[in-house]
């Protein structure tokens, strides 16, 4: 301790304090302040960048899920549309069938009606012809009756044969 006190140099202490003080002030202004603030800025920048990246990732995820949602909706819509189309087609086909059937029914019934009408007309005409024929035959029979009985009968026979219902 005695040695230490003897070795203590006030001059060196003075200069050390002075130089160190100057060094402190100079380094604070020209070194530590800019260095620490640069490091701080850089760290802040990295933090911000990381945060931005995280946000972008989240946004992307959101976008992706939104896209999927849209896709899903679209798919569902397509499904619905297809189903509707199928229904409409089926309905149209069945409608058409019905209409066609109705038409056909109608035509058939018309045809039937006209056939009946024709038939009636034909029958009437036939009746008329038969009546005329009968009258003709009767006329001829009556004309021939007078000449011979036999011939008479034969004639009727023959006549009837010709008239066999057409």
């Amino acid at each position: 301790m005695e040695n230490l006190i003897n070795d203590f140099s006030f001059g060196l202490f003075f200069w050390q304090t002075l130089l160190f003080g100057v060094l402190l002030i100079l380094l604070r202004k020209y070194a530590w302040k800019p260095i620490l603030s640069a490091i701080n800025d850089r760290e802040q920048g990295i933090e911000d960048a990381l945060e931005a990246a995280e946000n972008a990732r989240k946004e992307m995820l959101n976008l992706k899920s939104a896209n999927e949602e849209i896709l899903k909706e679209a798919r569902a819509e397509r499904e619905v549309l297809l189903k509707d189309a199928r229904d409409i087609r089926n309905k149209m086909i069945s409608d058409a069938k019905e209409v066609a059937q109705e038409q056909a029914q109608k035509m058939i019934s018309q045809a039937k009606e006209s056939i009946t009408n024709e038939k009636l007309a034909a029958i009437t005409e036939l009746k008329n012809q038969v009546a005329e024929l009968s009258i003709d035959i009767a006329k001829k029979v009556i004309q021939q009756e007078l000449s011979s009985e036999d011939k008479h009968l034969a004639l009727i026979e023959k006549m009837l044969k010709d008239v066999s219902l057409k």
Partner: peptide
């Protein structure tokens, strides 16, 4: 010290 650290700054 001054040269090194002001250079770094």
């Amino acid at each position: 010290l001054f040269l090194i650290f002001s250079g770094l700054a």
